[in-house]
Design a protein around this nucleic acid. Structure first.
Lengths: 161, 161
DNA sequence: CGACAAGAGGACATACTTGTCCTCAAGTCG
DNA sequence: CGACTTGAGGACAAGTATGTCCTCTTGTCG
C-alpha cells in the first residue's frame, strides 16, 4: 500500500486538477479532501520542491499544478515523497532475496510488485480527478478513457427513475 | 508486504518443519534462519500461545510444530501475529473507502489484495520447507507439489557437469 | 511603509514496529 | 534438594510514519 502521504497527495492533486489554473489554498484543499491541513502543507511543500506543484505566497496565492495532470502519475508522487512502498522488498523480509537467491515467495511477489508499479505508472492525476468528478456527479457522467483500471471501477448502474 | 515478524515466523517454521519431531532450541532456529534470537523468542512465544507451536523448557526442551506443516499456512501465521498487512486498507489511505464509496484505486486494490490473501492461504509451512530444502540441495531435487506458486519458483537449470 | 495573507520550516508529540537486555519461572537430572 | 538448561516476559530503546504547533519569510495591497 502507498504511504499515507502519497495517498493524500493523490487525493489533493486530483482535487487541484479540477480547480483549473487558479491557485487554491492549502487549507481549502485540506478541507475538501479530508486531510489534516498542517500535514498536507508539508506534503505540498515537498512536491513543490520537486517541481510537481507551484506555490505562491501572499494574497491571491495558493497552489497550482506545475504541469498537466495527464503528465503526473501516482508513481511520480510516490517517488517525490520517497514512498517506501515502491522500493523492492522481500515479502518475507529475508535479508538476501534476489532472482538468484530467492525466498519462497519471490516469484509471486515479483509479479505482484510488477502489477502494482504498472498501475502507479499508468494512473495519472487526471484519472483521479475524472474519477472523483464522476463520483460527485452521481456516477452518471460518461468517461472518455477506458484504458486504465479507473475506467472500469464504477458499476454500470441503470439510470435512476 | 508481510510484517517482519510474520516473515521471520515463516522462515523459522519452515526450518522447524525440516527438523522432524525433536525439539529445536530457539537459539538454533535463530542462527540457522538469520533471525535475531531474542526477537524470535517473542514471536515463538506468541505462536505457542496461539497453539501453532509447542514449547518445552529445560534440558531436552525447545520448540516443535503443534501440528503438521501442511495445515499451517502463511495466513495462519499472519493472523496469529496480528499482521496488519492482511487487514483491508484503502490503497490511497482514504478514510471512507468501500465498494459503495470507492476510491479511484479501489477495484485494482481489491483485486491485488485478493491475490495476496489467496497466496497466503494457499502456501503452507511444508511448502516453505520444501522450497528451502530444494534450494540447499542445489536446486536439483524434484518437487511433488506443482499447484502453488512455490512450485514454479525455481529456474529449470541443467544438471551440473 | 505597514497591515495582512499565505506558504515555509523547524521543534515537538504520538503510535507502531523492531529489537535488546535483564530477570524470572519451569523443567531435567544427578 | 540443588545445579543447570531453556523458554517467559517485562522494561527499555531506536527508527519511522504521521501529525500538531509555533514562528518566520515572502508576497499583495492600501
Amino acid at each position: 500500500m502507498l504511504n499515507q502521504a502519497t495517498g493524500y497527495a493523490a487525493t489533493a492533486l486530483g482535487f487541484l486538477a479540477t480547480a483549473g489554473d487558479k491557485p487554491v489554498l492549502v487549507k481549502d484543499i485540506a478541507e475538501a479532501s479530508g486531510i489534516p491541513s498542517p500535514y498536507l502543507a508539508k506534503i505540498i511543500n515537498a512536491l513543490a520542491r520537486k517541481g510537481l506543484l507551484v506555490t505562491q505566497r501572499g494574497i491571491g496565492g495558493g497552489v497550482v499544478l506545475a504541469r498537466s495532470g495527464d503528465s503526473i502519475t501516482l508513481h511520480d508522487l510516490a517517488m517525490a515523497l520517497d514512498d517506501t512502498s515502491i522500493l523492492p522488498r522481500c515479502m518475507l523480509g529475508t535479508a538476501e532475496c534476489s532472482d538468484e537467491r530467492a525466498c519462497p515467495a519471490h516469484e509471486f511477489w515479483t509479479g505482484m510488485r510488477g502489477r502494482y508499479l504498472d498501475f502507479l505508472k499508468r494512473t495519472t492525476i487526471t484519472d483521479v480527478a475524472a474519477f472523483e468528478t464522476r463520483r460527485r456527479a452521481g456516477h452518471t457522467a460518461p468517461h472518455s478513457r477506458g484504458d486504465t483500471m479507473l475506467g472500469t471501477l464504477l458499476p454500470i448502474s441503470p439510470p435512476r427513475p
